[in-house]
Design a binder for these strands. Structure first.
Length: 503
DNA sequence: GAGTTTGAAACT
DNA sequence: CAGTTTCAAACTC
């Protein structure tokens, strides 16, 4: 709401004269008190500073009046202070200016309404921003389109930077001295005519170089309202704006936090924990063998291929000591719904690669642990004859899953903590740049984390912050010390109503 | 630099 | 929403 940031408007004259970046434009307002959009300073969201204006209210001393004017302006047009020139989300080759004088992956949101300038003078906002007129424009006799001879005449040759020549050429173009189309005298909008022709049948009409215009327009679909940020990078870049300058590269807040070795370590720990749980409960497993046999059959019911593929996608080949992960499923199927023991997984619905991989390793561990009470991995992983039995199997399975998920949850919490810390840093710097605008807090993230109450899943509750200072060993001890016989009891894990981090 | 032209913004 | 007026920048001389 506070357009204090400079240069948010497309008027390039604030920065460009003769193609050269220039200092902030000084207005010369006399009657608007610099409190209307007529004033470039006001329109760009800046205070007048060193301007030649008369009776200026666009300054700190008249902040109240200014604020009032801003509100009135926004009331008329909520987008008044937003950049008129928005970069296109679909910058394609076709929308690129052939002549090479500039790239036009941008468009005028509102479009111009020129009548006499042919959109080849700086009266035209599109021309001023060095972009082609688009379907948003309602200009008449437009010559600012791709393929326009008149327009090319302005820029081609050795006169590319000679504004005098450009102006002369523009004048000639407007009066029809340049170009053979002969449509300059048409009293109606050539563009509209061209579009009518386009939608009609007469495409051969020589005047239909408008088609180029239209094509460009069609490649620059109405942009979603550009960034609410009051600064338009494209505009600021000026005439020589390049595609790169308008690109936004997204980087996760966790991009520098999660390292591959961390992931490996985490998974290794999970596997070890799982093995320990299996060992602890190994004696129970020997009691009800028959029931386990049935469960195992179910557990192995689904496709091996799917699981292998999932593992591949997860690309976590080195996450665990791979003794079992890739070699012991040849005669196995994937887990069936009934074997998930509390995990609500609709039949036929693909699980995430990560989930599958985790389940895979977990299953390996179960079988391994059953065969080798010492919890060592890599032996008899797929030996069906040595599977755990009955209730023991069920409990071991639940306990292992509980531990793995708990541990994983804790790690995610720590990641979130780091991410929020980083977010806070980013927010503060953004706020510094954007003024007093309220920056994003951890609210959104916290909501994300706590707003899944309606979902049924192992992480749908009990999301608890683990102190960043907690050592893994402590966490493990804590987790192992917690006993539960069923994954569904995960809610009994440390629960804290205040899930929001206070980083 | 004065005067004119132009089109966006503001207004009716 | 269309027509008119106001305004300041762009332009011409």
């Amino acid at each position: 709401m506070k357009p204090e940031s400079p240069k948010s408007r497309p008027r390039l004259n604030a920065e460009l004269k003769d193609g050269t970046p220039k200092k902030q434009k000084q207005c010369n307002c006399k009657h608007s008190r610099c409190l209307k959009l007529y004033c470039e300073c006001f329109a760009s969201g800046t205070y007048c500073d060193g301007c030649n204006c008369v009776n200026c209210y666009n300054n700190v001393e008249n902040e109240a009046a200014r604020r009032e004017a801003v509100e009135a302006t926004l009331e008329r047009n909520p987008n008044a202070f937003r950049p008129k020139i928005a970069s296109s989300p679909h910058g394609t080759r076709d929308s690129r200016e052939e002549t090479g004088e500039g790239l036009v992956f941008v468009k005028h949101n509102k479009g111009c309404h020129c009548k006499k300038s042919g959109c080849l003078k700086k009266y035209c906002e599109c021309f001023q921003a060095n972009i082609l007129c688009s379907e948003n424009c309602k200009c008449m006799d437009c010559k600012n389109f791709e393929g326009s001879e008149e327009r090319q005449a302005l820029f081609h040759g050795d006169h590319g930077n000679n504004m005098a020549y450009i102006q002369q050429a523009a004048n000639a173009a407007i009066t029809g001295a340049i170009g053979s189309s002969g449509y300059a005298s048409l009293p109606v909008s050539r563009k509209r005519k061209g579009q009518e022709l386009f939608f009609g049948q007469t495409v051969k009409d020589p005047s239909f170089h408008r088609l180029g215009h239209f094509q460009q327009a069609s490649h620059i679909r109405p942009a979603a309202p550009s960034s609410p940020l009051p600064s338009n990078p494209v505009t600021r870049a000026g005439i020589t704006t390049t595609l790169g300058s308008s690109k936004i590269t997204y980087r996760s807040l966790l991009s520098d936090i999660i390292q591959s070795q961390d992931l490996k370590e985490l998974c290794s720990v999970l596997v070890v924990l799982s093995g320990e749980a299996a060992k602890t409960l190994s004696d129970q497993r020997n009691s009800m063998k028959k029931r386990v046999e049935d469960q195992r059959d179910t557990f192995l019911a689904s496709s091996t291929q799917e699981r292998l593929q999932s593992q591949k996608e997860f690309d976590a080949d080195k996450i665990v000591s791979n003794d079992c992960s890739s070699t012991n499923h040849a005669d196995e199927g994937g887990p069936d719904d009934s074997s998930l023991d509390g995990v609500d997984m609709p039949k036929g619905r693909p699980m995430s690669p990560g989930t599958l991989a985790l389940m895979c390793d977990e299953q390996d561990t179960i079988f391994m642990a059953a065969a080798s009470p010492n919890g060592l991995m890599g032996h008899a992983c797929n030996s069906s004859s040595q599977l755990p039995c009955g209730q023991g199997m069920t409990e071991a399975y639940a306990e292992q899953e509980r531990i793995v998920l708990s541990k994983f949850r804790d790690c995610l919490n720590r990641l979130i903590t780091f991410g929020e810390i980083k977010e806070t840093k980013c927010s503060s710097s953004a706020r510094t740049e954007l003024g007093n605008e309220k920056g994003p807090s951890s609210k959104g993230l916290a909501n994300t984390r706590t707003g899944t109450g309606s979902q049924q899943g192992p992480f749908s509750n009990g999301v608890v912050k683990v102190p960043a200072t907690a050592k893994p060993a402590q966490m493990v001890t804590s987790i192992v010390a917690t006993s539960s016989s069923d994954l569904r009891k995960i809610p009994s894990l440390p629960q804290n109503g205040d899930n929001k981090l206070k980083s």
